[in-house]
Amino acid sequence: MMNDLHTPQIPLFSELEEPQSYEVYVYGTDDLIEQHTDSFSLAIGRYLGEIGISQNMLSKVTGIASSTLSRYLSGKRKIRYDYLCAVCIALRLHPCRQRHLFSLLLYEMPCECDFSQSDKYIIRAYLDGCAFDKRYTLTACNDQLTAIHAKPLTNLTSAKEDGE
């Protein structure tokens, strides 16, 4: 397992103070003009800052290279779909925040219309549960995807953790 001294304990939604307003919780403001100028870089920066996660720590908890994350977080490149799913699960983002990030990038949430693909169904289950249940981790999601011979979201798996 990863060393708990170096891995942040990201709280579940139920462990956080109840948000005062949906708009401020998701967009960082209740001003409609500012909400419409929000970007992936700004939103993810807010979410990381709120839970005290650095880019390097995000790299560690997702298995995504720090240099790759840097391009995504600065807005130089659009984050890959699988990496966006991984980031949302690893950060235990509330589904409202997940939907906001997906919409900013013009991505559709997994299984929004079609539940026939088992890999997408697994990913959606982890997106839906990660903010509410500690068992819904990125490692567990990747392990389940690997078990059905699907491509994991990132290279972070329990086998990799055990070998560290």
Rank of each mutant, 00 (worst) to 15 (best):
L101N: 11
L42H: 08
T7I: 11
M2R: 14
K160Y: 08
I79N: 02
N56F: 11
M57N: 13
P110H: 00
S74M: 07
Y83G: 12
Y72H: 04
L69I: 07
D114N: 03
N142A: 08
A131M: 02
F40M: 05
G75H: 03
L32Q: 11
D38Y: 11
S59A: 07
L156Y: 08
I51F: 10
C130W: 01
H94C: 07
T62A: 13
S116E: 02
Y72Q: 07
R99H: 14
I89N: 03
Y126D: 01
K120W: 00
V24H: 12
R99D: 10
E23V: 03
S70Y: 09
G75I: 12
I10M: 10
L48A: 06
P19T: 03
A150C: 04
C111R: 00
H6W: 15
L106S: 15
Y136M: 02
S66Y: 13
P8T: 10
I53G: 11
A150R: 02
R99S: 12
D143C: 02
K76L: 04
R135D: 06
T29G: 08
Q144A: 04
I51K: 14
Q55H: 08
Y136D: 02
G49V: 04
K120E: 00
R92C: 03
Y72I: 10
T37A: 12
S158A: 04
T139R: 12
G49Y: 11
L104T: 06
Q20V: 11
H36W: 05
P110E: 01
H100R: 04
L12M: 13
L91C: 06
A131L: 03
L32I: 14
S21W: 05
Y47S: 09
S158D: 07
F102I: 04
A43T: 15
A125R: 03
G63M: 04
A86G: 01
A140G: 03
E108T: 07
G28M: 06
R92T: 06
Y136S: 02
I64A: 15
C111L: 00
G75C: 03
D4A: 12
T68S: 10
S103F: 08
K120S: 01
C96L: 15
I64H: 12
G45F: 02
P110D: 00
E161P: 07
L48Y: 04
H6D: 14
L127I: 00
G52E: 10
A65K: 15
G49M: 06
P152Q: 06
T154K: 05
L32E: 15
G28F: 07
G28L: 03
S39Y: 13
